[in-house]
Design a protein around this nucleic acid. Structure first.
Lengths: 162, 162
DNA sequence: ATAGATGCAAATATTTTGCCGCCAG
DNA sequence: CTGGCGGCAAAATATTTGCATCTAT
């Protein structure tokens, strides 16, 4: 049994390998949630962009598509998506201040592994993690709806340099 | 193999079962860090109080011991302790806004399991978790120094009520 | 038609900083 | 004695809210 590296590093990439395109939009429609022009744009940003964007970045990308989108709408839309469990809110161990990061929620939970020296963030999945969650669910008598794991340390590259 | 419930619920209790008293203070002395009157008080609060306090609560408790402690000093001291890896900073899944919570770091990492309905937070340890961390460390080539897992869901009690 | 969304501006909340006098070592 | 620390006030960030207007369904 081994961890599955997602081979996706968060610095600058803009690829979404996980959720099918239009996933979020379809979820909203299914839930009878009003699809405004602005929500479409924010959702599009969340679907097509890399993970770990903070509200500011999301706003910038959204305004690139449609000037008439305000910060407030971004916050409100993120909150909406969050409440429906469609996106996750992370802090990535507060490595870079107290910003919050958002990412669209894929099928399976993944673990964020960050280097506290260079700031690279990898995402990994592991069967062991799924087992752990099952065990906690049964031992604590809880029906798990959110699970978040963030791990920090020094990566090989950074250790080699020092 | 089974999860070890810590039987410690975070709502209101003020017990520290984990670190020996004076642990933080001794660490600071060992590291040649100046021990001011104010730091002593904040450290005392962190050592003797329950986990999951936000800056506001820490300030209140500190001022109960010593009026002349300001919010700024609390923030600066928390930052100091954080930088030295002596306390952890959590957000507990942002269940109650964007506050940050602090707890003094015990020997072993534990998982925070929160009910998103009633807000209760339990802490559990699990051998499986230790295994998972080892696996990630070797598979990702990283020397882990921080690990944080937060799990949210509906607890039995709340499910029964609805 | 109308419930619910957005925009604007202002309010809140939270955390950080500059500067200067003070104290632990 | 002296370099780091704490207090004060103000700044910088980050997020939320009230209200009037607009729009998706």
């Amino acid at each position: 049994m081994s961890v599955t590296p997602a081979h996706r590093v968060s610095t600058g990439e803009r690829i979404n390998e996980q959720a099918p395109p239009g996933h979020l939009q379809r979820e909203l429609t299914a839930r009878r949630i009003r699809l405004t022009r602005q929500r479409r744009v924010v959702v599009q940003v969340m679907e097509s962009a890399a993970r770990h964007m903070d509200a500011e970045e999301i706003l910038n990308l959204a305004q690139q598509i449609d000037k008439g989108i305000t910060r407030v709408t971004v916050y409100r839309t993120l909150d909406l998506l969050k409440r429906h469990g469609l996106i996750d809110e992370l802090d990535l161990l507060h490595l870079r201040g107290h910003r919050h990061y958002y990412e669209s929620h894929g099928e399976r939970d993944h673990i964020h592994v960050a280097c506290i020296s260079c700031g690279k963030v990898r995402e990994v999945e592991s069967p062991l993690y799924e087992e752990l969650k099952k065990q906690i669910a049964s031992d604590c008598g809880i029906e798990i709806s959110i699970a978040r794991t963030e791990i920090g340390g020094i990566c090989d590259d950074c250790r080699a340099k020092s």
